[in-house]
């Protein structure tokens, strides 16, 4: 990996008053204010939003995709299989 990455933020947009926020995608940013600006620039260029929420992807707690235990990968968090969501201790190679 080239240099340390900015964290990933999930972006939620409320397109019109009266509607809920909907997940639009994600952006990388160094801090929350930058994440908001980036979300606005990337996801509301065509006036698609009146309100933006950004949340660090690693802060999201998610349910299991399905009830039954063994059929799907069990995990109560980490909405993606994103490599930087996982803390690997120093000294572990090739990860």
């Amino acid at each position: 990996m080239s240099d340390t990455e900015w964290p990933l933020y999930e972006v939620f947009i409320r397109s019109r008053a009266g509607l809920s926020h909907r997940h639009a995608g994600s952006v990388h940013a160094a801090d929350a204010q930058m994440a908001l600006d980036h979300a606005r620039d990337v996801y509301t260029r065509r006036n698609e939003g009146v309100s933006i929420w950004v949340v660090k992807s690693s802060e999201i707690i998610a349910s299991d995709p399905a009830d039954a235990a063994a059929f799907f990968e069990p995990a109560a968090d980490k909405i993606y299989r994103h490599p930087t969501f996982y803390d690997i201790p120093d000294g572990v190679e090739n990860l």
Partner: peptide, 11 residues
């Protein structure tokens, strides 16, 4: 310096 910022500059 980052893709998101390029979008901002183009804006």
């Amino acid at each position: 310096p980052e893709l998101e910022e390029e979008l901002a500059i183009a804006n």
